[in-house]
Amino acid sequence: MSNGNGTARHNDCRNFVPVDVAKGICRAKNKLIAIDTPTCENFTALPKCKNCANFTATENTLGICEADKNKTWVFEDLIAVTCDMYQAR
């Protein structure tokens, strides 16, 4: 699980409720937590394009969705919980 730089953030985790662009609520610990602080042992990967087998990275956090018939562009942090084509790596 990485953000492209090899580090997971809290907003990559399924237990995280995104309150805003800086923080959210960790359901596992039931407290507010800053996105860009180290994750913990409860980390569970949230479906995002960067975690999908159909994702091919290109540049600057962008990539291609190989499952789409038009091979359209996507971006690493696009949340994919509602995407029918998502396949965890």
Partner: peptide, 24 residues
């Protein structure tokens, strides 16, 4: 802007990792 948050229009914050998608 601060940290990984980019200010837009002095009002909204967006995660820096989404900015390339916004521009595209």
């Amino acid at each position: 802007s601060f940290g990984n948050v980019v200010s837009i229009a002095g009002k909204f914050g967006i995660r820096s990792e989404e900015v390339p998608a916004l521009i595209k």
